[in-house]
C-alpha cells in the first residue's frame, strides 16, 4: 500500500520493509554503478555532479540537501552504496525519473517543524569534513549551510547574523551547540532582539551577536 506521507525518522525501518517490495533493488544498484567512482565503492563529487545534472538540479540546491538528508548521507559529496540503496528504497524510487517525481513531496515534508529540526541538526554533521576528523564547523562553511538550510523560509535575523559572522573573522568555527541553539534562537526572538535575555543559557556567540546588534542600533539612534 502506498504511504503518502514521509514523516520523522522513527518509523523509517517499518516503512522500508513495506516499500521495498515495490522498487527494484537491482535497478537501484544499476543506477549506483552509473555514478560510482572508479576506485571506491561510493559516489564521489564527480559522480554527484553527474547525478544532479541528470536530476536537473544544481548540487547546491536545497532539494539536494534534503535528498542527502533522506539518504542519511554522513558526509558531503559522498554517497556510499548502502546510503544510496537505503535512500532510494525509502523514497520508493529506482530511476532518475522516479526520484525527480518525489521532489515536491520531499520539500513539503521538511515544512514540518520536527522534520526541519532533524534536517537542521543533521546538516551540521553533514558539513563536517569527517575525513580530517573535524569536529567544529568552520565559519565559512557554516554560513553557506545556514543560507542553504533556510532556503525555504528565512528567519528574520538570519541576514544580520551572517553579516555579524562575516565581519568577525576571528570567529573561526561554529560549535555544534551554537549551531543547534541558533534554531531555538530564531524561533524565540523572531525579529525582536530586545526580547533576548542574556542571563539565559544561550551560547556566548549569540550574546556577542545581540550585543553587537544593539550597539549598532544605539549608534544609529544617536547619530540620527
Amino acid at each position: 500500500p502506498p504511504i503518502r506521507k514521509q514523516g520523522g525518522a522513527t518509523s523509517e525501518g517499518k516503512r522500508m520493509s513495506l516499500v521495498s517490495r515495490e522498487v527494484s533493488e537491482s535497478k537501484i544498484l544499476a543506477l549506483f554503478e552509473l555514478y560510482k567512482d572508479a576506485e571506491e565503492d561510493c559516489i564521489l563529487a564527480d559522480g554527484i555532479e553527474r547525478f544532479c545534472m541528470d536530476l536537473e538540479v544544481k548540487p547546491e540546491e536545497f532539494v539536494v540537501l534534503v535528498l542527502a538528508w533522506k539518504f542519511g548521507a554522513q558526509t558531503m559529496c559522498e554517497f556510499t552504496r548502502a546510503e544510496f540503496l537505503q535512500g532510494c528504497k525509502a523514497l520508493r524510487a529506482d530511476s532518475i525519473k522516479s526520484i525527480q517525481s518525489r521532489f515536491p513531496e520531499l520539500l513539503a515534508d521538511v515544512r514540518d517543524r520536527q522534520a526541519f529540526k532533524d534536517l537542521y541538526r543533521w546538516t551540521y554533521t553533514f558539513g563536517l569534513d569527517s575525513a580530517s576528523g573535524q569536529r567544529t564547523l568552520p565559519t565559512d562553511m557554516a554560513i553557506t549551510l545556514w543560507k542553504l538550510v533556510f532556503s525555504q523560509g528565512e528567519p528574520p535575523v538570519l541576514q544580520r547574523w551572517l553579516e555579524f559572522l562575516e565581519k568577525h573573522s576571528n570567529i573561526r568555527g561554529i560549535p555544534k551547540d551554537t549551531w543547534e541553539l541558533f534554531l531555538n534562537f530564531t524561533e524565540q526572538v523572531g525579529d525582536d532582539l530586545s526580547s533576548y535575555d542574556d542571563t539565559e543559557a544561550w551560547p556566548s556567540l549569540l550574546d556577542d551577536f545581540v550585543e553587537f546588534e544593539n550597539d549598532r542600533h544605539n549608534q544609529n539612534v544617536t547619530t540620527d
Binding site: R135, P175, K176, D177, P203, S204
Partner: peptide
C-alpha cells in the same frame, strides 16, 4: 563561565 560550559559541551 559560558565559554567554559561551551568548551565542556564540545
Amino acid at each position: 563561565i559560558k565559554k567554559s560550559i561551551e568548551t565542556l559541551i564540545e
